[in-house]
């Protein structure tokens, strides 16, 4: 589609839509610098809530736990998701294919309360029968996060593999590379950007999860969203605004960085393709 004759109404709607999406975030950021404890009445500029946030030991412990959990979950989920994506995109219709495809899509649409409850009941039952996992904590959180994050990674990887020219893999095999070598030397390097995207997605999902974590965390482990949720339930606090600002800043930096990088390589690539087309054979 090109930009031929676009109704001005559409542009207005786009503007409104983006305002709707971003205004709450902008407001959140503005009021993180508010002097007053009331999050909605402006009383002058201050950074004191940031200092308070950094002195909140519970918050920091929770944040540290969430970060470690997200790193571990995203890595395992990326590995598992790549395997699952390979199965979906490259193994054709084996027995149990439908079950497998169903299992991959289920966590994407399953209400989190159900996933969380079922995970918890699994862990409790397993502990009772085989004595493992011993209690709930980081391990159970990790298993739960890997499971639902892997499904998201698998979707990203599957669609990347489906759009990849399969004859590239066949060519490698034809030139003497056995299947595992084909995967490590050809497939994986080519889908690496998708794996990175999947990892990032898993990382954010894990970092952000509240419901599933609340079920499987147990009394000992409190993740950042759990901490935020309990403090928000007690009422809004500028400290949370400060936290939100940091999160938004972090995400936008990542996004802008990735965006610039992608834009640059894309432009470079286009330029090179044009140059190649000008070359005479």
């Amino acid at each position: 589609m090109s930009a031929t004759r676009r109704s001005p109404l559409l542009s207005v709607w786009l503007l409104l839509g983006y305002t709707f999406l971003y205004a709450p975030i902008v407001i959140l950021i503005i009021f993180s610098f508010n002097e007053s404890k009331l999050v909605t009445v402006w009383a002058g500029f201050s950074t004191k809530w940031y200092w308070e946030l950094f002195q909140d030991r519970q918050m920091l412990t929770a944040a540290w736990l969430s970060l470690r959990l997200a790193l571990m979950s995203a890595t395992a989920a990326a590995a598992l998701g790549v395997l699952a994506g390979l199965v979906m995109a490259r193994f054709g219709r084996f027995r149990g294919h439908n079950l497998f495809a169903g299992m991959i899509t289920a966590p994407l649409v399953m209400p989190e309360v159900i996933t969380g409850l079922s995970m918890l009941l699994l862990f409790v039952s397993m502990e009772k029968v085989i004595g493992w996992p011993d209690g709930r904590g980081l391990l159970t959180l990790w298993i739960a996060h890997v499971t639902f994050c892997a499904a998201f990674v698998a979707v990203v990887i599957t669609s990347r593999l489906r759009e990849m020219d399969e004859s590239i893999e066949e060519a490698a095999m034809d030139l003497g590379a056995p299947p595992f070598k084909v995967f490590t030397a050809i497939t994986l390097p080519i889908i690496m950007p998708a794996v990175a995207a999947g990892w990032l997605l898993a990382f954010t999902l894990s970092l952000d999860d509240l419901v599933i974590s609340s079920f499987v965390a147990g009394p000992g482990a409190t993740t950042l969203p759990m901490k935020v949720f309990s403090s928000v339930r007690l009422g809004a606090s500028p400290k949370i605004n400060a936290l939100a600002t940091i999160v938004v800043l972090f995400v936008s930096l990542c996004a802008v960085g990735a965006g610039i990088l992608m834009f640059r390589t894309e432009r470079q690539r286009k330029f090179e393709i044009q140059a190649a087309m000008r070359d005479t054979d």
Binding site: L21, T40, V232, A236, A244, C254
Partner: peptide
């Protein structure tokens, strides 16, 4: 534009819902 739609999703779900408390409160924005 597409990135603009997806970007909020990458920030915390919980915090974005929290933002609306301040907007919709009785003494809110």
């Amino acid at each position: 534009l597409l990135l603009g739609i997806v970007l909020p999703y990458w920030t915390s779900f919980l915090l974005r819902i929290y933002a609306w408390i301040g907007i919709l409160k009785t003494n809110g924005l």
